[in-house]
């Protein structure tokens, strides 16, 4: 389907634009949260954890606002086809964004509560994984703003790299646990295992968003399996 022209009733376009603006703002705030998260993992900064906690309720507000906007839009406009998909996927995307925000908060608190600083090589890999998630977020927002199904597909396909990275760090942490068994280290490493699993799950939610963008633009639900890089852990 080619690029849409405007509605005869221009306020219809305004409603859609307003919903899209809210989703984009919410996504941008999530992007900001992951930038802060990177700093927290890197430096352990307590004040940055405070920043993350302060931002988190704003995401809930966005989620509620988008729900209100979409319900009003559907009630008053009776949208069809691509317009209806715009509304419905805005709801789903905001749920994924809200979840991404939750993950960010959880990881921040977990990092803050670590019993000891992780070994440099593991920390660097976790940072690298976080950067990958940040890149995916940036690209998925770009796909949303430009309504670009190909970019959405690229994001979907790129998640496998995060899965692979997760697997690699997982193995590294398990090796670390085995190499110097002591209680404190094991506790800290267990938290790191949860941390990387949560980052990996964040990647999955970004993939959800990419699929929702693809659906909005094309009307087709992707049925091919997601490319996988993850094993069973």
């Amino acid at each position: 389907m080619s690029e849409q022209s405007g509605h005869i009733v221009s306020s219809f376009d305004d409603d859609i634009a307003s919903i899209r603006r809210s989703v984009t703002k919410m996504a941008t705030l999530v992007e900001e949260q992951y930038k802060l998260l990177h700093h927290i993992i890197d430096t352990g900064s307590a004040s940055t954890v405070e920043d993350v906690l302060e931002n988190e309720p704003k995401l809930d507000e966005f989620d509620g606002k988008i729900r209100d906007q979409v319900i009003t839009f559907i009630t008053l406009r009776s949208p069809m086809a691509i317009d209806l998909r715009e509304g419905l996927t805005a709801l789903k995307i905001s749920t994924d964004l809200e979840r991404l925000g939750d993950y960010c908060k959880n990881i921040s608190l977990r990092i803050q509560a670590l019993e000891e600083i992780p070994p440099a090589e593991i920390k660097n890999e976790i940072l690298r994984m976080t950067v990958m998630v940040q890149g995916q977020l940036k690209r998925v927002i770009d796909a949303y703003v430009t309504k670009n199904k190909d970019k959405a597909l690229e994001v979907r396909n790129a998640d496998a790299a995060i899965d692979q990275h997760y697997q690699m760090i997982y193995n590294q942490i398990i090796e670390d646990i085995k190499s110097k068994p002591n209680k404190i280290k094991t506790l800290a490493n267990t938290k790191l295992l949860f941390t990387i699993k949560t980052i990996e799950r964040a990647g999955d939610h970004i993939t959800n968003i990419a699929e929702e963008i693809f659906y909005t633009v094309t009307g087709e639900i992707l049925t091919t399996p997601r490319p996988k890089g993850e094993s069973e852990q």
């Binding site: 022209s5 405007g6 691509i82």
Partner: peptide, 8 residues
């Protein structure tokens, strides 16, 4: 699509 969504 243009017709049913009110674009023409």
């Amino acid at each position: 699509q243009d017709y049913i969504t009110g674009r023409i």
